[in-house]
Protein backbone atom coordinates (compact mmCIF):
# COMPACT_ATOMS: atom_id res chain seq x y z
CA UNK A 1 0.00 0.00 0.00
CA UNK A 2 1.20 3.41 -0.89
CA UNK A 3 -0.70 5.18 1.83
CA UNK A 4 0.06 4.76 5.47
CA UNK A 5 -2.54 3.90 8.06
CA UNK A 6 -2.46 7.47 9.34
CA UNK A 7 -3.19 8.77 5.88
CA UNK A 8 -6.14 6.39 5.56
CA UNK A 9 -7.47 7.81 8.79
CA UNK A 10 -6.97 11.48 8.08
CA UNK A 11 -8.41 11.47 4.58
CA UNK A 12 -11.85 10.95 6.10
CA UNK A 13 -11.47 14.12 8.12
CA UNK A 14 -10.94 16.55 5.27
CA UNK A 15 -10.05 15.29 1.81
CA UNK A 16 -12.96 12.84 1.61
CA UNK A 17 -15.15 14.07 4.43
CA UNK A 18 -18.74 12.90 4.00
CA UNK A 19 -21.19 14.30 3.19
CA UNK A 20 -19.41 17.48 2.06
CA UNK A 21 -16.73 16.01 -0.16
CA UNK A 22 -18.21 12.66 -1.10
CA UNK A 23 -21.84 13.69 -1.21
CA UNK A 24 -23.15 10.45 0.24
CA UNK A 25 -25.38 9.68 3.20
CA UNK A 26 -27.56 12.73 2.65
CA UNK A 27 -30.76 11.23 3.98
CA UNK A 28 -29.71 11.10 7.66
CA UNK A 29 -27.71 14.30 7.20
CA UNK A 30 -30.80 16.24 6.22
CA UNK A 31 -33.25 14.50 8.47
CA UNK A 32 -31.69 14.19 11.90
CA UNK A 33 -29.63 17.37 12.24
CA UNK A 34 -32.36 19.31 13.99
CA UNK A 35 -30.38 19.29 17.21
CA UNK A 36 -26.76 18.73 18.17
CA UNK A 37 -27.73 15.76 20.31
CA UNK A 38 -29.33 13.99 17.36
CA UNK A 39 -26.44 14.81 15.06
CA UNK A 40 -23.79 13.43 17.40
CA UNK A 41 -25.89 10.37 18.24
CA UNK A 42 -26.41 9.56 14.58
CA UNK A 43 -22.72 10.11 13.85
CA UNK A 44 -21.59 7.79 16.63
CA UNK A 45 -24.05 5.08 15.61
CA UNK A 46 -22.85 5.27 12.02
CA UNK A 47 -19.18 5.31 13.06
CA UNK A 48 -19.67 2.16 15.12
CA UNK A 49 -21.40 0.32 12.29
CA UNK A 50 -18.86 1.54 9.75
CA UNK A 51 -15.82 0.47 11.78
CA UNK A 52 -17.29 -2.94 12.61
CA UNK A 53 -18.47 -3.69 9.11
CA UNK A 54 -15.20 -2.49 7.58
CA UNK A 55 -13.17 -4.75 9.88
CA UNK A 56 -15.39 -7.79 9.36
CA UNK A 57 -15.59 -7.38 5.62
CA UNK A 58 -11.87 -6.86 5.39
CA UNK A 59 -11.29 -10.02 7.43
CA UNK A 60 -13.62 -12.02 5.23
CA UNK A 61 -12.64 -10.45 1.93
CA UNK A 62 -10.98 -13.64 0.69
CA UNK A 63 -13.89 -15.86 1.67
CA UNK A 64 -16.71 -13.79 0.22
CA UNK A 65 -17.40 -14.94 -3.35
CA UNK A 66 -17.40 -12.13 -5.84
CA UNK A 67 -20.84 -12.85 -7.25
CA UNK A 68 -22.68 -12.43 -3.96
CA UNK A 69 -20.46 -9.85 -2.31
CA UNK A 70 -23.14 -7.16 -2.10
CA UNK A 71 -25.53 -9.54 -0.39
CA UNK A 72 -22.83 -10.52 2.09
CA UNK A 73 -21.96 -6.89 2.76
CA UNK A 74 -25.59 -6.10 3.42
CA UNK A 75 -25.92 -9.03 5.81
CA UNK A 76 -22.87 -7.84 7.77
CA UNK A 77 -24.03 -4.22 7.81
CA UNK A 78 -27.61 -5.10 8.71
CA UNK A 79 -26.41 -7.23 11.59
CA UNK A 80 -24.43 -4.40 13.12
CA UNK A 81 -27.19 -1.89 12.52
CA UNK A 82 -29.64 -4.11 14.36
CA UNK A 83 -27.16 -4.47 17.20
CA UNK A 84 -26.86 -0.69 17.40
CA UNK A 85 -30.61 -0.33 17.30
CA UNK A 86 -31.15 -2.75 20.16
CA UNK A 87 -28.38 -1.26 22.26
CA UNK A 88 -29.71 2.25 21.70
CA UNK A 89 -33.18 1.15 22.70
CA UNK A 90 -31.81 -0.38 25.86
CA UNK A 91 -29.59 2.47 26.99
CA UNK A 92 -30.46 5.73 25.22
CA UNK A 93 -34.15 5.34 24.63
CA UNK A 94 -35.06 9.05 24.22
CA UNK A 95 -32.39 9.44 21.56
CA UNK A 96 -33.66 6.31 19.86
CA UNK A 97 -37.15 7.80 19.76
CA UNK A 98 -35.85 11.00 18.19
CA UNK A 99 -33.74 9.31 15.55
CA UNK A 100 -36.54 6.85 14.89
CA UNK A 101 -36.55 5.28 11.46
CA UNK A 102 -33.13 6.69 10.60
CA UNK A 103 -31.31 4.13 12.74
CA UNK A 104 -32.58 1.14 10.73
CA UNK A 105 -32.04 3.18 7.58
CA UNK A 106 -28.28 3.19 8.23
CA UNK A 107 -28.38 -0.17 6.44
CA UNK A 108 -28.98 1.50 3.11
CA UNK A 109 -26.58 4.35 3.77
CA UNK A 110 -24.36 4.75 0.73
CA UNK A 111 -21.31 5.52 2.85
CA UNK A 112 -21.34 2.04 4.40
CA UNK A 113 -21.74 0.10 1.21
CA UNK A 114 -19.39 2.46 -0.55
CA UNK A 115 -16.59 1.95 1.94
CA UNK A 116 -17.20 -1.81 2.02
CA UNK A 117 -17.09 -2.12 -1.74
CA UNK A 118 -14.44 0.46 -2.50
CA UNK A 119 -12.09 -0.03 0.40
CA UNK A 120 -12.60 -2.85 2.89
CA UNK A 121 -13.00 -5.51 0.22
CA UNK A 122 -9.57 -4.64 -1.18
CA UNK A 123 -7.47 -3.68 1.83
CA UNK A 124 -6.10 -5.14 5.01
CA UNK A 125 -7.79 -5.14 8.37
CA UNK A 126 -5.76 -2.35 9.95
CA UNK A 127 -6.12 0.12 7.11
CA UNK A 128 -9.83 -0.76 6.81
CA UNK A 129 -10.23 -0.01 10.48
CA UNK A 130 -8.46 3.32 10.07
CA UNK A 131 -10.54 4.13 7.00
CA UNK A 132 -13.81 3.32 8.74
CA UNK A 133 -12.87 5.31 11.81
CA UNK A 134 -11.74 8.31 9.77
CA UNK A 135 -14.83 8.42 7.58
CA UNK A 136 -17.06 7.81 10.57
CA UNK A 137 -15.50 10.62 12.60
CA UNK A 138 -15.62 12.89 9.56
CA UNK A 139 -19.32 12.14 9.17
CA UNK A 140 -19.90 12.84 12.86
CA UNK A 141 -18.05 16.15 12.57
CA UNK A 142 -20.07 17.21 9.54
CA UNK A 143 -23.34 16.29 11.20
CA UNK A 144 -22.32 18.14 14.33
CA UNK A 145 -21.36 21.25 12.38
CA UNK A 146 -24.60 21.23 10.42
CA UNK A 147 -26.70 20.55 13.49
CA UNK A 148 -24.98 23.31 15.48
CA UNK A 149 -25.93 25.85 12.82
CA UNK A 150 -29.45 24.55 12.56
CA UNK A 151 -30.09 24.23 16.27
CA UNK A 152 -28.54 27.53 17.28
CA UNK A 153 -30.46 29.49 14.63
CA UNK A 154 -33.59 27.38 14.53
CA UNK A 155 -34.25 26.81 18.22
CA UNK A 156 -31.88 29.28 19.83
CA UNK A 157 -30.29 26.49 21.85
CA UNK A 158 -27.04 24.55 21.83
CA UNK A 159 -27.30 21.00 23.12
CA UNK A 160 -30.67 22.01 24.59
CA UNK A 161 -29.09 24.91 26.50
CA UNK A 162 -30.41 28.35 25.47
CA UNK A 163 -27.62 30.45 24.02
CA UNK A 164 -29.46 33.67 23.36
CA UNK A 165 -31.51 35.72 25.74
CA UNK A 166 -35.25 35.21 26.09
CA UNK A 167 -35.90 37.98 23.57
CA UNK A 168 -34.50 35.80 20.77
CA UNK A 169 -37.16 34.67 18.34
CA UNK A 170 -36.02 31.35 16.88
CA UNK A 171 -35.60 31.24 13.11
CA UNK A 172 -37.63 28.07 12.99
CA UNK A 173 -37.27 27.72 9.23
CA UNK A 174 -33.82 26.28 9.91
CA UNK A 175 -35.11 23.24 11.77
CA UNK A 176 -37.75 22.51 9.17
CA UNK A 177 -37.01 20.30 6.20
CA UNK A 178 -36.40 23.05 3.59
CA UNK A 179 -34.02 24.73 6.02
CA UNK A 180 -31.93 21.56 6.02
CA UNK A 181 -31.53 21.70 2.25
CA UNK A 182 -30.69 25.39 2.20
CA UNK A 183 -28.23 25.05 5.07
CA UNK A 184 -26.50 22.01 3.59
CA UNK A 185 -26.26 23.73 0.24
CA UNK A 186 -24.68 26.83 1.75
CA UNK A 187 -22.20 24.69 3.70
CA UNK A 188 -21.24 22.77 0.55
CA UNK A 189 -20.70 26.12 -1.15
CA UNK A 190 -18.44 27.34 1.65
CA UNK A 191 -16.51 24.06 1.63
CA UNK A 192 -15.91 24.39 -2.09
CA UNK A 193 -14.77 27.98 -1.68
CA UNK A 194 -12.33 26.94 1.04
CA UNK A 195 -11.16 23.94 -0.95
CA UNK A 196 -10.23 26.00 -4.00
CA UNK A 197 -7.62 28.08 -2.23
Amino acid sequence: MAKTVVQEFTKGLWAEIPPFRIVLGLCPTLAVTKSVENGIGMGIALTFVLVCSNVVISLLRNIIPKQVRIACFIVVIATFVTVVELVMQAYTYPLFLKLGIFIPLIVVNCILLGRAEAFAAKNGVISSFADGLGIGIGFTLSLTALSIIREVLGSGTFYNIPVFGPSFKPFSFMIQAPGAFVCLGLMLCVMNMLGKK
Partner: peptide
Amino acid sequence: AILMLSWESM
Protein backbone atom coordinates in the same frame (compact mmCIF):
# COMPACT_ATOMS: atom_id res chain seq x y z
CA ALA B 1 -42.51 32.49 2.53
CA ILE B 2 -39.56 31.68 4.78
CA LEU B 3 -40.50 34.45 7.18
CA MET B 4 -44.11 33.25 7.24
CA LEU B 5 -42.93 29.76 8.17
CA SER B 6 -40.54 31.01 10.84
CA TRP B 7 -42.29 33.85 12.61
CA GLU B 8 -45.97 33.24 12.16
CA SER B 9 -47.22 35.77 14.68
CA MET B 10 -45.01 38.54 13.29
